[in-house]
Design a protein around this nucleic acid. Structure first.
Length: 644
RNA sequence: GCCGAUGUAGCUCAGCUGGUAGAGCACUUCCAUGGUAAGGAAGGGGUCAGGGGUUCAAGUCCCCUCAUUGGCUCCA
């Protein structure tokens, strides 16, 4: 007998060789039907694995993330089997589960796989799922494994196997498909009741662009058809929140081929919104002791040679501008820091001046790879809510904590609760990519983590994601389609002060080198507005909404009264739209609702007689009749609340 | 930059196997003056992304370029 320990710490005895599925059956048949995979001593295994030793066991169902992972990973096997039926020569590489679904990277060799093959593969998958073939995991020796894939001339699997130790290698078979796999499968293909292949994309083998590009096929699957239907509805809903779609519908921004790709044009309503956000940030920064500065959009190439950016990013920049004068080269500003360093140098600094916090809404231009451009989240010209803090080494941590507080204040004011904080450190290898001394790096990395701990932030620590001059803390937020974007960032930099030979006079009357902190709570106005738009689905809070109130007269007869209301609102600095078109009230309401205007004032005979307005709130409907003054107070209070 | 997809009126999209363009919304004018998500009629608007080719004939087929887009790589 062996002893099995369950998550609730209870222990039961079973005969040796019992499988997790059998254990589930011993508990209840309902559970047995739901169990997908098993967590055996913390390792994901097939639920059909015989247990030969006493162990801890967690039975994983669809409700567990790991249960889903096993389900989707198994679905990747099923997809491979279906693909193999049509493309016998296809070479399979890796097929993992992902956050939502799974993919398989396939080398189709001479053949090509295009999106129109998807229905065929889906159909085959359904057919193979119905056969309810068990997933059978069995050990193979390294030699056997290598021989199997040599026969198939699959160099990818061979490469994978070569990195495995003999004795630890298992294959998995379901139906006619065999795959190198360590396990974590559902019992049989019949569990997969609904499959949807989502898209086909290119991906490099092992994520390295020097390697061969494979065809990656993404899919998702569910244990019930209903769940797939719901998921597809969800996807559709998410697409409605896409900032690119809303930006066009709400008249926020546009792009023009003639102006150039990745160069957004802000329309009046978008510019309005953006300006308001800038004002909000400016005020918050003023309170936090920042000083605004302004620097030009270009800088001489020599400036960036000094900063080191030319060497590192020269090729990824808009190329220097040649002027008539010999040897005169200017670059479109790709970042503001060098300019700010020169402002620091403009006068001698004392330790009493520090920390010196220089802020600028600085527009920068970066020649991003064309394939990278994406709406407002990845553009070639954007404005950072940038600032550089010059401080003494002993002030770094305190300043860092203050910046964290500022970022958290901004996020809270805008109802961003769903973000993750990521600490980016150097990678252990490739140390030559980074500049600066080990001592400074270690110190900066330590201080960031201390600051983060002090504010109780839960963070993800990622090695190898640091900037070349220093470690950083990034605030990541997901967009409507679940893609992660970096918004706020705080970076410690010991390097630029060296390169620009910045100094200050200390209390000891000696020259010392300051430390720089780069920081941008929004990241960039463009990206922030994109994510904010998706976050609130275009329903901006009243203080930000480009139009706060629409005044809608019932008929032309009441335009005069309506106009008085409009004037009153405008005098109170409420952004108001006057819809005096000769349309029916239903139509005017519909149009205002579509524009997501927070308040609609319906005025007609009754309202005019009583000197009132009938208020309708976006998404909520009629909220009753009140005087214009009451409404104005209501709105101004909401605005004030947000700005304090 | 790489692999794939897409590009028809301001917007959303039709346009089958080639026979020189359509709808709805928006816009303009007229009628209607209507009480909480689309009133009616008439009208204007398109070098079918751009260029080249095949053909008697190209929005439709082929090639190139540009842009958008799903991924990959990248992201100071």
């Amino acid at each position: 007998m062996i002893q099995i320990k369950f998550p609730d710490q209870s222990v039961r005895e079973y005969p040796e060789g019992t499988t997790p599925i059998e254990i589930a059956k011993s508990i209840s048949h309902g559970l047995a039907k739901k169990v997908l995979v098993a967590d055996i001593d913390g390792v994901l295994r097939d639920a059909t694995t015989p247990l030969n030793h006493s162990t801890s066991l967690r039975l994983l169902t669809w409700d567990d993330d790991n249960g889903k992972a096993g389900f989707w990973h198994s679905s990747a096997h099923l997809m491979a089997e279906a693909i193999q039926a049509f493309y016998p020569k296809a070479k399979f590489t890796i097929g993992p589960s992902i956050e939502n679904g799974f993919y398989y990277d396939v080398d189709f060799g001479e053949d090509s796989f295009t999106a129109d093959q998807i229905p065929t593969i889906e159909k085959k998958m359904d057919e193979l799922a119905k056969q309810d073939n068990p997933f059978v995991l069995y050990p193979v020796s390294k030699a056997e494994a290598l021989a199997y894939y040599k026969e198939k001339s699959n160099e990818y699997k061979i490469e994978l196997i070569e990195n495995l130790t003999d004795g630890d290698i298992t294959f998995c078979r379901q139906g006619s498909f065999v795959d190198l796999c360590r396990g974590g499968h559902i019992p049989s293909t019949g569990y997969i009741k609904a499959v949807k292949l989502l898209n086909v994309a290119g991906a490099y083998w092992r994520g390295d662009e020097k390697n061969k590009q494979l065809t990656r096929i993404y899919g998702i699957s569910f244990p019930q058809q209903k769940m797939l239907d719901e998921y597809l509805v969800l996807l559709k809903e998410a697409k409605k929140r896409d900032h690119r779609k809303l930006g066009q519908e709400l008249g926020l921004f546009t792009f023009s081929n003639r102006v150039g790709k990745g160069l957004p044009l802000w329309l009046p309503k978008g510019a309005d919104l953006r300006e308001r956000l800038e004002r909000f940030m400016r005020d918050a920064q003023k309170k936090a002791g920042y000083q605004q500065v302004v620097t030009p959009h270009i800088g001489s190439k020599a400036l960036y040679e000094t900063s080191g950016h030319w060497e590192k990013y020269g090729k990824d920049s808009f190329q220097p501008i040649h002027t008539p004068e010999e040897d005169e080269l200017f670059m479109l500003k790709p970042m503001n820091c060098p300019h700010h360093c020169e402002i620091y140098k403009a006068e001698p600094r004392s330790y009493k001046d520090l920390p010196l916090r220089l802020a600028e809404f600085g527009t920068v231009y970066r020649y991003e790879q064309s394939g990278e451009l994406h709406g407002l989240t990845r553009v070639r010209g954007f404005t950072q809510d940038d600032a550089h803090i010059f401080c003494t080494a002993s002030q770094v941590k305190e300043e860092f904590v203050k910046v964290i507080d500022l970022v958290l204040h901004v996020f809270k004011s805008l109802n961003f609760h769903d973000f993750t904080a990521q600490v980016s450190l150097r990678s252990k290898e490739n140390r030559e990519k980074y500049i600066g001394s080990d001592e400074n790096w270690d110190r900066a990395e330590r201080e960031i983590q201390e600051a983060v701990a002090e504010r109780g932030l839960t963070t993800r620590v990622v090695e190898g994601e640091a900037a070349f001059y220093g470690p950083k803390l990034d605030f990541m937020v997901k967009d409507a389609l679940g893609r992660s974007w970096q918004l706020g960032t705080i970076q410690v930099d010991y390097n630029l002060p060296d390169r620009f030979e910045l100094d200050y006079t200390g209390a000891d009357n000696q020259k010392h080198r300051p430390v720089m902190i780069h920081r941008a709570p929004f990241g960039s106005m463009e990206r922030f507005i994109a994510v904010l738009t998706e976050h609130c689905a275009g329903n901006f809070p009243v203080w930000l909404a480009p139009v706060q109130v629409a005044v809608l007269p019932i008929s032309d007869k009441f335009n005069d009264y309506a106009k008085k209301v409009v004037e009153l609102l405008k005098n109170n600095e409420i952004r108001t739209l006057f819809d005096d078109r000769s349309e029916k009230i239903g139509k005017k309401i519909r149009d205002s609702e579509m524009m997501k205007i927070p308040y609609m004032l319906v005025v007609g005979e009754k309202e005019e007689a009583e000197n009132q307005v009938a208020v309708r709130q976006h998404g909520k409907g009629d909220i009753g009749v009140m005087s214009s003054d009451t409404l104005i107070k209501l709105i101004l209070e909401q605005v004030k609340e947000m700005l304090n």
